[in-house]
C-alpha cells in the first residue's frame, strides 16, 4: 500500500521528521503513537502533501507511485485520505455539496461516472444511517459552528463516502467523549477491508481499545524508536512515554 523510506521533513528550516521507514500492507492497521512534538501529526501532513512542510530526504511510494511528486488533490484522488486533527470550517458551503464535488472529482480521476445530486443524496444518507450520525450534519455548512466532536464525526463521514484506499487518522480521538469515540471507532472498523489500510495517529492508547491495530510504532523526536504488536500500546499506557525515550537514550 504505502512504503516510506528514510523520510526527512522540516518546517521553516527546522527538521521534524528525521528518517522514518515504514511499510503498511493492504488491509493493515498501523498505529503511530508518541509524545507531543514527536512528529506524529507532521508525518500525517507530509503524507497528505501540506505545502508548509518540506521533504528534505527520502521517498514515499503509494500504490506504486511516487507520492511526493503528486499534488495534494491528486493524492486524495489516488485514494489517500487524511482525517484532520482540526477539521477546517468553510462558511456558506454545505457539507453535502462539498462531499459531492469531492466524490465526483475522485470518481472522475478513477474513470468512474459522476453521481448526480439525487443518487449522491441517497448514498450519503445511507452512510449517515450506517454510522449512526444525525442527518442534519449534511445540511449544515461545512464544519461551521460544529462542536469538536461533530467535526471529528464529520471526518469519518467524509471517509466513509470517499472510500479511500489508505486513511490516515490524525489524533481523531482527541477531545472526544466516550460516545463520540465509539461512533468514530465503529466507523473505522466498518471500513476495514482487505484492500484498505489505516494509519492511526494517536497520543493515547484509549482509541486502540476500539480499533485494534496490527502494528504499533512509537515515534520520538522524528524517528520510530520502537515497533511492536497491539500489546505495545498497553505497555506504553502503563509505563508512559518516558520509558521508550529513556530506553532510547
Amino acid at each position: 500500500m504505502i512504503k516510506i523510506s528514510d523520510l526527512h521533513a522540516s518546517i521553516e528550516g527546522r527538521e521534524i521528521i528525521r528518517g522514518i521507514d515504514l511499510e503498511v500492507r493492504p488491509g493493515e492497521v498501523h498505529a503511530i503513537m508518541g509524545p507531543n512534538g514527536s512528529g506524529k501529526s507532521t508525518l500525517a501532513n507530509v503524507l497528505a502533501g501540506r505545502e508548509a512542510y518540506e521533504v528534505t530526504q527520502g521517498s514515499v511510494e503509494f500504490l506504486g507511485k511516487d507520492l511526493l511528486e503528486l499534488e495534494p488533490e491528486v493524492r486524495a484522488r489516488e485514494g489517500l485520505f487524511l482525517a484532520f486533527q482540526y477539521p477546517v470550517e468553510i462558511p456558506g458551503v454545505s457539507n453535502t455539496y462539498f462531499l459531492r464535488v469531492a466524490l465526483n472529482e475522485i470518481r472522475r480521476h478513477q474513470g468512474l461516472d459522476e453521481l448526480d445530486a439525487l443518487d449522491f443524496l441517497e448514498l450519503v444518507r445511507t452512510k449517515v444511517r450506517e454510522l449512526h450520525m444525525r442527518e442534519d450534519l449534511l445540511e449544515r455548512q461545512l464544519n461551521t459552528g460544529f462542536s469538536g466532536g461533530e467535526k471529528k464525526k464529520n471526518e469519518i463521514l467524509h471517509m466513509a463516502v470517499l472510500e479511500p484506499k489508505l486513511a490516515i487518522l490524525d489524533e481523531t480521538d482527541s477531545g472526544l467523549d466516550i460516545d463520540a469515540l465509539r461512533i468514530v471507532a465503529d466507523g473505522v472498523n466498518a471500513l476495514r477491508a482487505e484492500n484498505r489500510s489505516f494509519i492511526v495517529v494517536t497520543h493515547y492508547q484509549r482509541l486502540l481499545e476500539y480499533i485494534v491495530p496490527d502494528r504499533v510504532h512509537v515515534l520520538s523526536e522524528g524517528r520510530i524508536v520502537r515497533s511492536g504488536g497491539s500489546d505495545l500500546a498497553l505497555e506504553l499506557e502503563e509505563k508512559g512515554y518516558g520509558w521508550v525515550q529513556e530506553e532510547q537514550a
Binding site: P72, E73, L99, V101
Partner: peptide, 30 residues
Amino acid sequence: ISEDQIFFCQQRGIDLEEAVSMIVNGFCKE
C-alpha cells in the same frame, strides 16, 4: 482564504481553482 481551507479541500480531491471558487461562493452564499 486560509491555507488550511485550501489544503482541506485539496485533501478531499478538489483542486485549487475549484476550492477557491467554492470558498468564495460560500462566502457569498447569503
